[in-house]
Design a protein around this nucleic acid. Sequence first.
DNA 1: TTACGGCCTGAGAGCGCTCCAACAAGGGTA
DNA 2: TACCCTTGTTGGAGCGCTCTCAGGCCGTAA
Lengths: 337, 337
Amino acid sequence: MTTRERPTLEAVARRAGVSRATVSRVVNGSTTVAATIREAVNRAVEELGYVPNQAARSLVTRQTDSIALILPETANRVFSDDLFFPAIIRGVGSELEAADKQLVLMMAGSAAGYHRVERYAVAGHVDGVMFASIHGADPLPGLLARRGIPVICSGRPMLADPPVPYVDVDHAGGVAAALDLLITSGRRRIATIAGPQDMVAGLERLTGYHETLRRAGLPSLVAAGDFTRESGVTAMRALLAQDPDLDAVFAASDLMAHGALQALRDAGRRVPDDVAVIGFDDFEISRYSDPPLTTVRQPIAEAGRVMARQMLRLIAGDPDIDPAIILPTELITRASA
Amino acid sequence: MTTRERPTLEAVARRAGVSRATVSRVVNGSTTVAATIREAVNRAVEELGYVPNQAARSLVTRQTDSIALILPETANRVFSDDLFFPAIIRGVGSELEAADKQLVLMMAGSAAGYHRVERYAVAGHVDGVMFASIHGADPLPGLLARRGIPVICSGRPMLADPPVPYVDVDHAGGVAAALDLLITSGRRRIATIAGPQDMVAGLERLTGYHETLRRAGLPSLVAAGDFTRESGVTAMRALLAQDPDLDAVFAASDLMAHGALQALRDAGRRVPDDVAVIGFDDFEISRYSDPPLTTVRQPIAEAGRVMARQMLRLIAGDPDIDPAIILPTELITRASA
DNA sequence: TTACGGCCTGAGAGCGCTCCAACAAGGGTA
DNA sequence: TACCCTTGTTGGAGCGCTCTCAGGCCGTAA
């Protein structure tokens, strides 16, 4: 290991024959430095391979140019084929990279996790904190906001004290579009596989289902799931047992829809002839299921990008941040409905 | 925003009626502090809501307790249904979390990305750098190592100057197991869909294919892919055109195997009756394909965990780090072969 | 020639923390 | 009683950087 001593500002200054302050000015791109001196400094920087020490810099500037993204701990345990968090990470990552900020990934959810994240943020390790998907009435966003740390959520937080800006997608609109397709194509016994009710996404999609069906004068039939494929299988079986004659099912996630497809096949039902299936997400894999899945596309990566952009504005001190941004959803019609 | 002034060590010391040094000792868990004083300090910390300033701390300790994971930029662009990087992240994340280190995620690959990562690491923002999957002869790992920064790679680096410790999986063994199954079940015209040849994983799986078939006295038939599903479809079509009578295909990734399955179905071939298919990865989705995919399981998350563990040892100054750790692969037999 | 801005540059004071050297008490030993 | 440990505590010197402020230089106008 060539742990050669790393050069400091001081060393560069000596070599260039100027003061520390001047080097600092050059390094930070100040314009008030004479061209000849600037060049001399740049040469010294080059020759010495100087890179500013981040710790020293943030000690005085009080900012770190990195931003945390908090994932619920479940992301680490349960969903080994989940594509939601990867998409969020992709979106956030690309946007932050463009702004030359760093992404710090943290898992939270456990009590210990809470505390860790809080300490981490308060210790000034990051300039802001973004939450990817809030579970239940998570107190953490509010807690950090109260500590004066910039916070943005993906998905409307249930707890809003103080209100934290968020970006979410139009769940209700997407659900309505899906159900409308089902209804206008003549389906009358439309069941749903709901998502977890401690998450706004699960909640709003179920509410949307109830409202649209009520408006259409159709009966509701609900089974509970947790967004996973396995829960989709189980829920679909339960639904079939309750109403063997149902002719459509709306699943609140693509993975659950895939599970439903499987359970339907096992039960000898043809899709879409006997039962139409619609999902919610539009993951890549849904183009390749048998049959290809009709689903509501939600722009996950885009949500990540927007979230990151809002965070950047927040950090920059922009006074008028939208308290909420709702991204549109879109019905993608394929073969399953 | 309640940006109330954050208390410093000094403030805590004043409140507890001791010196800064003593507070520092208590906060950092030194044992040589009298119990009564320790309690008084803890009380003051509690009351003031004191959290040590990370920048100040790392300025003197020269460590940050966070570690970077570098993803190739492609991860951000191409693979929207790739499950490799999420799995690596999961593995690394869980291990680092247990060690109370933070994970900093960075994308690299572009020239600009290189420079950013290098500066970032050299600036002392992280204590070490891990690479998830090396593309071609990436100079970055060696470059950082030469700068004295702890580096670990997932996947053997092609460039080994200076040699960088890595963890990889037993590609050759997995391929041999897959092909043996094919051969002993009577397949004689076994094709392969190869991965990108600028990655060790692609290279070694193809080499393994060639060697095993040569030993068995069987002919080779190769089509090139890039690990994606789409490339699997294309490659399978090419293979079918070249040898309509092939009776088996080994794909160097699950996604390509799924593509092959699709192309085979489109061409009217039955799997496994007409053509047997084996993949490599064992992603969750491969349990649900039609038919379920026989594949070589590589322990991706485990590789992430091991990589993180090695990194932790490296940072701790452990003198004897294994220069290479090879994790076993395992053939998972399902319906496609 | 002197006076006066304007423009650059340098000196120096921190940012909040760790850690070393030095020192104050006690308690045991000769 | 004098001496030496041991245990616990303090002051202070930095870590490497930014940023304010004062001061030097020069051109221009009086």
